[in-house]
Design a protein around this nucleic acid. Structure first.
Lengths: 334, 334
DNA sequence: GCCAGCTTTGAGAGCGCTCTCAAAACAACA
DNA sequence: TGTTGTTTTGAGAGCGCTCTCAAAGCTGGC
């Protein structure tokens, strides 16, 4: 690997001058700048990142922490994290940052600790299921610029990008009521995260708003992994007084629910209406195409990156918050 | 941020001793080791990565280079790269490495150049569409340990993990012939990569083997982006002498083809049999469930990481090659 | 031609760590 | 207690870069 020194030698100037050229600083005569530039080109010189970091305390690397999760959580096609990742990655490229990805295994934040404390990154974006995930605490105590995907009740000092899960859920369920549905069930997300809590609360509020009874039997919480949405829907269908609509807090569950309903020979939406959440790609190709709440996932990643870069340049500007709009996409399942 | 020096001070020992403790080296009396360890704990000390890298020339970071592509290439559900990424990421975590992800925008390898030349990473795994992608050349000339996903005809010195695309395609098409199909079309991948070339060649060889005519009209190459597979299938259906089977070199295309066939009121597999490639999650949920060649994507990522770590420790051991088995998953579309 | 006031250039310290090498401490034995 | 041999400890150089500060070079006005 070439060093600054070799470039300096070849261009017959000092290290300082080469450094100035590399960093686009003034106070270099055009002729000399040209000479240095061609020395760099001829040698194929690329500055050593570690050495630069040593002195500037900057890495130009953004950290992204995601749970180590299988691609098909909630039985969906697993596009949430990939899309988030992709948008963050693209935003980093556009802004000339590198991306260090940490997928954190449950209960083992060792690598995350190393990343956060080791000066690896200038700032971090994180999306965890649980508000109380240890990783969030590590982030908060690291005092690194940070942006969460999804608000966190325990760390008001952290910045976040989120959607209004409460209103979105409320809107979806209200829509079902306006369609004449009266017995509306919900397939909930886990309530260890705010998304789960708020979507459930939005569901509840909509029922309350319309004077409908709250039946605990209609509130199910399938596990994240596997096809639990399918089993949960069967459970609902086994009820003596089965629901006439289901609000699923994730498309994956809605899709599995569709399967279960179809298997019983019931029609969607005639017998049971189904609404999902996310608008993942396969939602529009389901049978029938799924009515669902669209989350602007890519936009969330892009904005999170933008906020983070702002925080990196001006940490005192935080905490920053951004609520992105959702949209109820009405197709044929409700 | 805490430094070695502060730890040394608190434990009343020299820098060298603290360094020995941190790196689990011998020649430290147990009592002192304990004292240092608790100083580290009390201060919440984490070693500075850049400083370590400066002297060890090791970063413990693995680079992963992927094309900057939208999640739905070939109209699929975009799980190839996410799954690859996930398996590499998990393998890195298991092996206590960090992962630096670069999504390379077409025609702009600047960030990739920085990563490869700047001492950011100890080695790199790359999966590019085109064998001649400039990134591959950067990798080859960087002399960094590297493993490609998919063999490359131009750089025999590089290690790779791959499947036998030729035989897999041949097997799939032979299966169609054995099912009595005689006019078999193919929806090809782009031939700028070996996967595309070899799947096409396998298709050709299967026809040759069975004495079937090669009709250029039955060889279509839809573009990667968007729903070209759908349009291509329509084109095939418009043929005066339409095919009785289609071998699609990617599930996404196969799925779009299914749509096009259904829309014409034709039956799968009775009128036209369809075989895909990849076995992406939605393949099994298609109507009818898709017969397809399963690629062990996760396994490829895991093995690529394993090979890379081997190369990092012993560069002279390369180049390493590994061919993973595929499997023809027979469902109902053929 | 000389000097003030500018711009350009270079020397060298220092970032936080590892690792070599020599010194110090200890153990074993006579 | 002295000596040898072994283990433990610490001093300090050096990794490749940036950035400060002082020196050198240049310009223009007299």
């Amino acid at each position: 690997m070439k060093t600054l020194e070799e470039v300096a030698q070849r261009a017959a100037v000092s290290l300082a001058t080469v450094s100035r050229v590399i960093n686009n600083q003034p106070h270099v005569r055009p002729a000399i700048r040209e000479r240095v530039l061609s020395a760099i080109r001829e040698l194929g010189y690329v500055p050593n990142a570690a050495a630069r970091t040593m002195v500037t305390r900057r890495t130009n690397i953004v950290g992204l922490m995601l749970p180590q999760v299988t691609w098909d959580w909630y039985g969906g096609d697993g596009t949430f994290y990939p899309m988030l990742l992709q948008s963050v990655s693209n935003a980093c490229t556009v802004n000339e940052r590198h991306l260090l990805l940490s997928t954190v295994p449950p209960g083992n934040p060792q690598m995350a600790r190393e990343v956060l404390g080791g000066g690896h990154i200038d700032g971090v974006i994180a999306s965890m299921f649980a508000s109380a995930d240890p990783v969030i605490n590590l982030i908060a105590t690291s005092h690194l610029p940070a942006v969460l995907i999804g608000r966190n009740p325990y760390y008001p000092e952290l910045s976040w990008v989120d959607v209004d899960n409460f209103s979105s859920a409320q809107e979806a369920v209200s829509y079902l009521v306006r369609q004449g549905r009266r017995r509306i069930a919900t397939l909930m997300l886990g309530t260890e995260g705010q998304a789960g809590v708020q979507r459930r609360d939005g569901y509840t509020r909509a029922l309350l708003n319309h004077g409908l009874a709250l039946d605990p039997a209609l509130l199910l919480e399938p596990s994240r992994s596997g096809d639990d949405g399918y089993a949960a829907m069967q459970q609902l269908l086994d009820l003596p007084n089965r629901p006439d609509a289901v609000f699923a807090a994730a498309d994956g569950m809605a899709l599995r629910a569709l399967d279960a309903i179809r298997e019983r020979g019931l029609r969607v939406p005639e017998d049971i209406a189904v609404i999902g959440f996310d608008d993942q790609p396969s939602a529009s190709r389901a049978g029938p195409p799924l009515t669902t709440v669209r989350q602007p996932i890519m936009e969330m990643g892009t904005q999170a990156t933008a906020l983070l870069l702002r925080l990196i340049d001006a940490p005192e500007a935080g905490p920053l918050h951004m609520v992105l709009p959702t949209q109820l996409v009405i197709r044929q399942s409700a």
